[in-house]
Nucleic acid binder design. Structure first.
Lengths: 198, 198, 198, 198
DNA sequence: TATTAAGCGAGACGGTACGTCACGTCTTAGG
DNA sequence: CCTAAGACGTGACGTACCGTCTCGCTTAATA
């Protein structure tokens, strides 16, 4: 989800965009969600909280949906697990990292909001899908590395297993009363290890 | 999610509610979601589409959220799997039934919308949580039956396994480009069988 | 300038418009103009001052221009001079009545605002033209009555003379530092009497 | 309405202003009014149409009102009638000249717009008043010359008569469906001649 | 059979947020 | 110091939707 203005290395004429505005807006979204829930994420409220004007926001993102998605992405951050020589350890590391990012207050609502936004008509499925794809991608990478390495069974249905690893965290976060915890991480890794370990 | 008016056997004086109105409203929600996405589900739009007045709707459900949840519940229907003597077969049956209900066009958006609605401030987590709980409940029942029967390992972490079974369907439905399919069902049952089969 | 809803004797179904809202909005426009000038006549300001919602205003008038025109018409009121047997006396009466209505504080700005509104693209010339036509009409009626009666020269160019009678008041009101006064009225009647009296 | 920078003979250091910019801006105002009405006269629109930047405009005029007034003045031009030995002829000449300047398409809207602008809160009445004063001044001069010369009655109320001569043109231009024409000019001169001719 | 309570469609109401537009200022890079 | 380009804060615009209320009517159970 890039800004409307590409804003690469070269820059056109005219006053450049202020980075401060971009950051302030995204932070404001996060703060509002965490404190008062998604319904408090009003464009006016974001503008006021960020000390920024509405037009300045609309210059960067085409609407509320895009803003929320951008905020979610910026907040949740990157996921990447290096080769540790053992797929069980790597899965554990990935899930623990995700657990960490989900522990911030309000992520559950923000994520639910993003999922909701992806239900709109014009929404590129990418709304929540982009995040989903990123999580899936890293999970698959670990499994494929394991197959290459030999500690994951060669006949493993990588996509299905990755889904079973990736999905429970979000499922618990969004749908259940208790958020995901270390216990869930341990159990998932244990079960997957048992099912596809070589 | 019951009507505001209990409307049991006994009934007060005055004109009784018309069943037609209730049905028409729920159908209108579903039709609008399927055709135009969640953002088209306006109370006015539902009223017009259903050929029903707004007060008539508000007499039955306290607001938009309740109406949407009611529509989702009515649409997705009940889940229940009888004892088949084999937990693998029963899980397969349950997932296949869910697959069926998810195949109707628009469920993905309806479900995403319900999840989004649960992110609002005042929302009882139950919005989407109620559905989630039902799915989890039936899945756990199958596993527990398996433990009792002896074809599921006695040391199984039922909750974690149930999450791994239940979550992938929704994850795919909501976040991925391709909806869940038979292949996913097979893979999930196979893997779980391998991991917790006695 | 009628309400969008004809609202004659018969009434359609649904909740009827509240007269209170209509009156309050028009009064608010007048009050704002008188106290702070045309630029204070914001739709938001009118709504707040009137204790009325913006949508309620837009249900009655299609925009700011229409609202201002309606307010001006309601404020300035009707003009009508009965047959007094002498066209000089009748002209004097008409001009004095107009003088009176122009004396209310803020009319000058309101009238100027209406004229300005008639310069917009989509504006029916009627914006200010409607008022202009009413004034001209009554003035012409007096002159024509005079011709029929015989105290106005039969060869009089009624339209031109009426313009010379009607225009000065507005001209002074809108363009000059001093508003029109009794002296101007006397002078106009005297001169016209001299020029077209039989 | 002079430029903000006096710009007399002596000139400070730095790059001098480009005359091209000034002319282009004024022309753009006129073109926009004529083609699309006053509401199309946006500072941005003027800048774009003139091929000029907004700051360049604000360096010359303090705001929209000033710009519009400047454009109107530049467009309508000077009025001055030399002594012809007969006040009737002179009045006729003056009104005919004004008729000419009013015939350009769009003047009606431009003038109405200027009048409207004079209704704003902070506006020096001069907005339209300046033009009004100029017209009145020249008209009065003719009448006074006539009194001195002896072909206008000595007891004439110069101000009132001048108003009756000057007002009808604007009244017709702004408020009526048909703009002023030669017929109106003839009639006004004829009537005034009859009323105040010696 | 008449009464009465509650249903019904229609549509206006206050409120709140939306996304847009214009104003006048400021900031950049370049003459 | 000028220029064009374009972002900025401010604030109004006109629209959409929410949930409520008022209207005149219909419908059934009760008296």
């Amino acid at each position: 989800m890039v800004d409307k203005q590409g804003q690469g290395v070269v820059r056109g004429p005219g006053r450049p965009r202020e980075e401060r505005v971009t950051r302030a807006a995204l932070d404001a979204v996060v703060a509002l969600v965490a404190e008062q829930g998604m319904s408090a994420v009003t464009m006016d409220a974001v503008a006021e909280r960020a000390g920024v004007s509405k037009p300045a926001i609309y210059r960067r993102w085409s609407g509320k949906q895009e803003l929320i998605i951008a905020a979610a992405e910026a907040w949740i951050g990157e996921l990447s697990v290096p080769d540790r020589g053992d797929f069980r350890a790597e899965l554990h590391e990935l899930l623990t990292a995700r657990l960490e990012s989900y522990r911030q207050p309000g992520v559950d609502r923000l994520l639910a909001g993003v999922i909701g936004a992806s239900a709109e008509a014009g929404a590129d499925r990418g709304a929540y899908g982009a995040y989903s794809a990123r999580v899936m991608g890293e999970t698959r990478r670990i499994l494929e590395r394991g197959i290459a390495r030999g500690d994951v069974r060669a006949d493993t249905d990588v996509r299905a297993v990755a889904t079973m690893v990736a999905a429970p965290m979000v499922f618990r976060l969004v749908g259940e009363l208790e958020p995901p915890d270390r216990h869930l991480v341990d159990a998932v890794v244990e079960l997957v290890g048992r099912a596809v370990g070589a």
